[in-house]
Design a protein around this nucleic acid. Structure first.
Lengths: 119, 119
DNA sequence: CTGAATCCGCGCGGATACTG
DNA sequence: CAGTATCCGCGCGGATTCAG
C-alpha cells in the first residue's frame, strides 16, 4: 500500500486537522497545554501578542472540538483551567514530526523566499 | 530529552510550517503534486471549488517557499507543469501522521462538536 | 479574573474581464 | 492554456467597553 498514490480521503483528513489547529493561535495554545493545565491569564501572557478576544475564541473552538476541556473553579476571584484532552495529546508526535521538518528545512525555505522576492 | 516540556522553538517551527501549507488550498495542491507533476488546468479540475485566482496565488506562495517548482514549456498552446520539490516531498510522512490522527479521532471530534453546538 | 458584546478597519477571496 | 488586473463584499481580528 501507499505506492505514492494519495487518496482523496487523505486530503479530507488533512484539511480536517488543519481546520482544527490551523488557526493562528490554536497550536500555541495546545503546546502550552501540553506542558500542563493553564489558566486563561497564563495563556494570555504566554502567547505574546494575542488579544483577549482571540484567545477566548480560540479556546472555544478547541473546546468545541474536544481538544481542550474547561474547568471552572467556583472561587473569588474566579479561576478557570484549560486542559488538553487525551486525544489532543496524541497530536504531539505528528506535530513534532512537522516541527522537525521545519527545523531541517528552515534555512533552505528562508533563502528561497528571499531569492524569490528579489528576483 | 523531551520530558513533556515543550520548547518555544517548537512553537515557532510549527507556525512556520502552518504558514507554509496551512492555507485553504496549499495542502490539496501538494497532495496532487505528490502523485506526480500537474498542469495548471489539471489542478484546477482536481481541486473542486478553487478559483483561478486562488490557485494562482497558492502556487505562487508554494513556489516562493520552494515547495513547488514551475516549468514552462514554450509551446502553443502554452503548457506549464508544477512539480513538488524534494524537501516538500519529505512533508509526506509528517502529513500522513496528521492524517492518521484525523482518521482515528474523526468520529469523536465530530460528535463533540455536535454536542457542543446543541448545548 | 474571565470573559461577552459592540464597533470598525482591513485583507482575504470570489466574480469578472482582459492578455500573451 | 495559463495566467493577470480590477472591483467589491464579507468575515477575521484588534480595540474598547461592559458584566459575572
Amino acid at each position: 500500500m501507499d505506492d505514492g498514490e494519495v487518496l482523496p480521503a487523505e486530503m479530507c483528513s488533512l484539511r480536517e486537522v488543519l481546520d482544527l489547529v490551523g488557526d493562528k493561535w490554536a497550536i500555541r495554545v495546545l503546546i502550552q497545554l501540553g506542558d500542563g493545565p493553564r489558566r486563561f491569564s497564563e495563556l494570555e501572557r504566554a502567547l505574546a501578542g494575542v488579544s483577549r478576544r482571540m484567545l477566548s475564541l480560540t479556546l472555544r473552538g478547541l473546546e468545541r472540538n474536544s481538544l481542550v476541556t474547561r474547568k471552572v473553579y467556583p472561587e473569588v476571584p474566579p479561576r478557570v483551567e484549560y486542559t488538553m484532552t487525551p486525544h489532543a495529546a496524541e497530536l504531539d508526535e505528528p506535530l513534532h514530526a512537522l516541527s522537525a521538518w521545519a527545523a531541517k528545512h528552515r534555512a533552505k525555505v528562508s533563502a528561497a523566499r528571499q531569492a524569490f522576492d528579489v528576483g
